[in-house]
């Protein structure tokens, strides 16, 4: 082997090894080569399906791109005259049948894999007492309705290792519910009720955000699922949720535009707005929206309005100011 070729070869080997090593490290750390680590059976099964499809598509990828590279190298002109013709082959029926049938077979296998995994993804496992929670997408926050009637905003508290059945709704525009580690998306569509489920396999906090463009603050519509022990969950829904509701409502629904202290932002300053302490006025604008304000609280209960009023009164309102906000 001449020195030049050997050097080229060595270079190629180094490049390939570097690429493989980088890809390997990234894959091991889940650098985005697979969906996020799954913590719910449905998400697990989606990842399994993903891996199987990845194997097939990678093989096809290597064959196609490999053939392309080899042909580019092998059949390049190399000083032949421009007009020199290549082999005048018009086709080959047997070859063409082969590369029609093989993809059909591969796709059939992928289809079978998907249908094999499907029931475990779309159907919640049978459980004696599943937790039923209603998820409402709003411009620009998530609201959760627990079985006992309590509500929370943006933070969904659930017990670990229990099946949680979600009913997903919207009253304004289309949103999409998605906590990557707990399974796939489902749109929250006004006028329609959708369903999904998960079963968190470990205590902890799972992050997600609205996945369907829903307007100005689409990016701010983030959600957390906090999975804890059954006892903690019960304490949360029976008392904590109610005591935190006013703060959660203000921070989830109002602060996006008006600032965490009501100091103003995209929306006007609230800290000195007397409307904040008028029960009917506040309820009216929260329920129906304003000039630029969406009807953030169109599905709120009286208790929710009261909670908001109390929080606003005690924490945000700083007294009327003549100088304006």
């Amino acid at each position: 082997m001449p020195v030049r070729v050997r050097r080229k070869l060595a270079f190629a080997v180094v490049v390939v090894l570097t690429v493989l090593a980088t890809a390997g490290i990234a894959a091991a750390a889940n650098g985005g080569f697979t969906p996020e680590f799954a913590h719910s059976p449905n998400a697990h099964r989606i990842n399994t399906a993903y891996w199987i499809v990845l194997v097939f598509t990678s093989v096809i990828f290597v064959i196609v791109e490999g053939a392309l590279v080899v042909f580019i190298w092998k059949y390049r002109r190399r000083g032949r005259p421009r007009t020199a013709e290549g082999s005048q082959v018009h086709g080959n029926t047997r070859l063409e049948v082969i590369w029609t049938v093989i993809p059909v077979v591969i796709l059939a296998v992928i289809g079978i894999v998907v249908f094999y995994e499907l029931p475990g993804i779309s159907n919640a496992p049978a459980a004696a007492n599943p937790i039923r929670i209603t998820v409402e997408g709003h411009q620009f926050y998530w609201q959760f309705d627990y079985p006992n009637g309590s509500r929370s905003i943006n933070d969904l508290h659930v017990p670990v290792d229990q099946v949680v059945l979600l009913t997903v709704k919207s009253y304004d525009v289309v949103h999409s519910w998605w906590i990557p580690q707990l399974g796939g998306k489902i749109q929250a569509i006004p006028g329609r009720t959708n369903h999904t489920w998960f079963k968190a396999d470990r205590a902890g906090t799972y992050y997600g955000q609205c996945a369907e463009f829903c307007g100005l603050y689409h990016e701010a519509m983030r959600a957390r699922v906090i999975a804890s022990t059954d006892a903690d969950y019960r304490t949360y829904v029976s008392s904590t949720a109610a005591s935190e509701l006013g703060r959660a409502e203000f921070q989830g629904a109002c602060a996006t535009c008006h600032g965490m202290q009501g100091q103003g932002g995209y929306g006007p300053n609230l800290a000195h707005d007397p409307l904040l302490i008028q029960p009917s006025g506040l309820a009216n604008i929260v329920r129906n929206g304003g000039v630029k304000m969406p009807p953030v609280g169109d599905s709120w209960t009286k208790a929710q309005m009261t909670a908001l009023l109390q929080y606003a009164k005690s924490q945000i309102y700083k007294g009327a100011s003549t100088s304006g906000g």
Binding site: I72, Y75, R76, R77, R82, G86, S87, L95
Partner: peptide, 26 residues
Amino acid sequence: SMVIAVPTGIKIFNWIATMWRGNLIF
């Protein structure tokens, strides 16, 4: 949607086969 991959694949394979034993002018 998967069915569409078949005729698309046919095209790609046929294009690559077009390069086979050609005089590729880059």
